[in-house]
Design a protein around this nucleic acid. Structure first.
Length: 422
RNA sequence: GUAGCUAUAGUGUAAUGGCAGCACGAGAGAUUGUGGAUCUCUUAGAGCGGGUUCAAAUCCCGUUAGCUACCCCA
C-alpha cells in the first residue's frame, strides 16, 4: 500500500473544518489590523534561503529540501516564508505604495526533519510581516496581533516570552563577549556545548545539562545592548504593558535564524510536548538591505498551524453535518426525474444529496438522518403521477404532500422553522 | 543523524506458545413506501522477510513504518 511520505499528513474532511476555523479567525484579525494577504511560490532559488536564514544554520545545512531542476538550477522548497516575502517585496517594489507594508500569509513549509509531536516535514504556517518601520509600537502591534489570534481561537495557558538581540553590531559584540567568557570553562562543557561554542555560543546558555547550566549562570548576564537598542526594547515592553499584554523577559530566547535583530519573541503553550513554541517571530532590520534593497526595518511572526491544532484539540467539538434536502427515491425510473428536480433546487442554492445505490426507503431515511438533512423529499411514483412529492420535516417528524411547483418555498420554510427551534 | 517504545478488521482494543475475540463503525433485516432506541444477521484483521518450535499474533533476528525524545525548530 502506498502511504503518505514520512512527516506529511492528509488533512481529512473531518479535520478540515478545524483548519477553516483557524484560518478564517486569523483572516478576520488580519483585516482588523489592516494586513493584506500575499501568496508566494513554494519553490524558490535555494540561494534565497541560504543568504537570508544563514548558511551555518541547521535549517539550511540539514533540513532544507534542495534539488536540481532540469536546467540544473538549485531549487529549494521553502522552509519558511519571510525570505520569500522579502524577495517578493523587493521584486515588486511593494514599499513604493506606502510607508509600512503589512502582509500576511498562510501556507505549507518544508523541512526535512525527523518527525515528532508538533513537527512534520510538510507543515503549515500562518504569519505576518510588517515592513518599513523601526517604531517599537510596530513590534507591539505584531505581538498583540498574535495574542489576539490566540484569544480568538480560545487558546489558553500560553506564555509570551520576549527578548532583544540588539542590532547587528550588538549581536556580534554579544557573541564575542560570551565566547570569551565561556572559553575558560570549555573543557567542562558537555560535548554538544563544545560544538555550540563554535556554531552558536548563545545556545550554551539554554543547555539542559546541569554542568553547563551552572557555568552559564556564573557568567554575568549584564546588559550588552547599545543605548538605541536598549531604548527600543524598553519601549516595546512599555507598549505591551499599555495594552495589557502579559509577557516574560527571557534572555535565553535566541532564535535559530540569522536575520533576527532587536526584538524576538516566542509564544509557548503547555499542551504541545517538547516542541512547545506555537508562534515565534521578531525584528529583522538588516535582512532587506542584505538582500539588495534599501535599509528597511521590518518585524513579523509565524504560527505553526499544526501546533495551534494541538493546543486546541482537547475542547474540539464535532461540527454536525448539515444538508437542506435529501432525496429518497422509490419506483422504477424515478431517479432521473429526481435528479432533475435536485438540480433545480441546487440552482436555488439549496444543499442537496441523493442516494445513488438505489437502496430501500428505510435505508435512505437512515442515510438522510446521518447526513443531517433538515428535509427529505420522498420522490415516489404515486406522488409524481399527481405532480406532487412528499416533503418530510426531519426535526418535527412531520410530513405532507407538496405540489412540485411549491417545493422551494416549502423547503425554505422548513429550514427557517428548524433554525428557530434550534 | 541518534535513542527508547510500538505494530492485530475502517477505528479502538483482548488473548504470553495451543481454534484470533470484543466494542464502535459500516451494510442488510425485524411483514408491502419512512429516520435518532432495541434486537438479529453480515462485513472485515496479524506491516514485510527470515529463524526457533509438533505448534508463533505471542519467542529471536532483520527490515519497514509509526510514536516519543535528543538535536533543531513554527
Amino acid at each position: 500500500m502506498l502511504k503518505a511520505l514520512r512527516g506529511t499528513k492528509d488533512i481529512l474532511p473531518a479535520d478540515a473544518a478545524l483548519w477553516q476555523f483557524i484560518e478564517s479567525s486569523a483572516r478576520d484579525i488580519f483585516a482588523i489590523y489592516d494586513y493584506k494577504e500575499i501568496r508566494t511560490p513554494v519553490i524558490e532559488e535555494a540561494s534565497l534561503f541560504i543568504r537570508s536564514i544563514g548558511n551555518a544554520t541547521d535549517i539550511v545545512q540539514k533540513e532544507m529540501y534542495v534539488f536540481s531542476d532540469r536546467g540544473e538550477r538549485s531549487i529549494a522548497l521553502r522552509p519558511e516564508a519571510t525570505a520569500s516575502i522579502v524577495r517578493a517585496y523587493l521584486e515588486n517594489s511593494l514599499g513604493q505604495e506606502k510607508a509600512v507594508t503589512k502582509l500576511f500569509y498562510i501556507g505549507p513549509m518544508f523541512r526535512s526533519e525527523r518527525p515528532q509531536k508538533g513537527r512534520q516535514r510538510q507543515f503549515h504556517q500562518l504569519g505576518v510581516e510588517a515592513i518599513g518601520s523601526d517604531n517599537p509600537l510596530l513590534d507591539v502591534e505584531v505581538i498583540s496581533l498574535a495574542a489576539r489570534i490566540m484569544r480568538a481561537l480560545g487558546i489558553k495557558d500560553f506564555n509570551l516570552n520576549i527578548n532583544s538581540l540588539g542590532c547587528q553590531k550588538d549581536k556580534a559584540n554579544i557573541i564575542e563577549k560570551r565566547r570569551k567568557a565561556v572559553k575558560p570553562y570549555l573543557n567542562s562543557l558537555c560535548d554538544e556545548c563544545k560544538e555550540r561554542y563554535n556554531k552558536n555560543v548563545l545556545r550554551i546558555f539554554d543547555c539542559k545539562n546541569a554542568g553547563c547550566r551552572k557555568i552559564a549562570e556564573g557568567i554575568e548576564s549584564d546588559n550588552l545592548l547599545c543605548s538605541d537598542c536598549a531604548g527600543h526594547f524598553e519601549a516595546v515592553k512599555k507598549g505591551l504593558k499599555v495594552i495589557g499584554i502579559n509577557f516574560i523577559v527571557d534572555p535565553k530566547i535566541v532564535r535559530g535564524l540569522d536575520y533576527y535583530t532587536k526584538t524576538v519573541f516566542e509564544v509557548t503553550q503547555k499542551d504541545l510536548g517538547a516542541k512547545d513554541a506555537i508562534c515565534a517571530g521578531g525584528r529583522y532590520n538588516s535582512l532587506i538591505e542584505e538582500m539588495g534593497g534599501k535599509d528597511t526595518p521590518a518585524v513579523g511572526f509565524a504560527f505553526g498551524i499544526e501546533r495551534m491544532i494541538l493546543s486546541l484539540e482537547k475542547d474540539r467539538h464535532l461540527i454536525k453535518p448539515e444538508l437542506d434536502v435529501f432525496f429518497a427515491v422509490t419506483g422504477e425510473g424515478m431517479h432521473e426525474k429526481a435528479f432533475q428536480l435536485m438540480n433545480n433546487l441546487r440552482d436555488k442554492g439549496l444543499s442537496c444529496d441523493i442516494d445513488y445505490d438505489e437502496k430501500s426507503l428505510k435505508a435512505q431515511m437512515r442515510m438522510a438522518e446521518k447526513l443531517g438533512a433538515r428535509s427529505v423529499i420522498i420522490f415516489g411514483e404515486d406522488e409524481i403521477k399527481r405532480e406532487k412529492v412528499s416533503l418530510r420535516d426531519m426535526l418535527k417528524r412531520e410530513q405532507k404532500e407538496v405540489d412540485l411547483k411549491d417545493i422551494v418555498e416549502e423547503i425554505k420554510a422548513n429550514s427557517k422553522k428548524g433554525a428557530i427551534s434550534c
